[in-house]
């Protein structure tokens, strides 16, 4: 399948998902109070920036944004 064919098949689904994300962020913005100090918003922001990259490992990198770090000395910590 060509890249154009994949885009043709997925375009509307991607459009819907992006609009859903925008609507959620707007909802948070309209709500009472502020959540700007919540680190989860920072992770969402990092994730959205990552989506604009061209590399083909965005899914794995996005997963890592939402992961705690691994400590190789976990046995002694």
């Amino acid at each position: 399948m060509t890249a154009s064919e994949v885009l043709e098949r997925e375009f509307l689904a991607v459009r819907t998902k992006l609009i859903d994300i925008a609507a959620v962020l707007d909802r948070i913005g309209r709500a009472n109070g502020r959540a700007t100090d919540d680190p989860r918003l920072g992770k969402i922001s990092q994730g959205l920036k990552l989506l604009a990259d061209d590399d083909c490992d965005r899914t794995e990198r996005l997963q890592m944004i939402f992961s705690l770090p691994y400590n190789e000395n976990w046995r002694t910590k």
Binding site: S67, Y70, N71
Partner: peptide, 11 residues
């Protein structure tokens, strides 16, 4: 689950 998966899997 979720944020614990990566370090937990490596452990």
């Amino acid at each position: 689950h979720l944020e614990d998966k990566y370090p937990g899997t490596r452990m």
